[in-house]
Amino acid sequence: MNGYIPILVLGAIAFAFAVFSVAISGLTGPKRYNRARLDSYECGIEPTPQPVGGGRFPVKYFITAMLFIVFDIEIIFLFPYAVAFDSLGLFGMVEMMLFILAIFVVYAYVWRRGGLEWD
């Protein structure tokens, strides 16, 4: 069992830290509630645009963010492929094209469905 003791200790520390943080901030933190404290960002900046009907962000943010992530992932695959381009040969070429094509299809869908229009 000796090998597991570090894991257990780590888990215990993590748990203790979580409990400690919650408890200590409740116990020692000042409790002065005012309008600024209840805002989304306590620094005073107003979220824009103002959420309509309470607490929701426009879904457009998410679409843009997700499209960005998909591009990200595409790049992550393209980099190592570029490095191993020679050894993969035609096989790699075809597979990569298929991969890019699949992602392209999704973009075409988003584009045709108006996902790229902001308003």
């Binding site: 699949a102 299809v105 999704v106 075409a108 869908y109 584009w111 045709r112 469905r113």
Partner: peptide
């Protein structure tokens, strides 16, 4: 399935 996505688009 991918063809279906294209159909949806075009």
């Amino acid at each position: 399935a991918i063809l279906g996505v294209l159909v949806e688009a075009f």
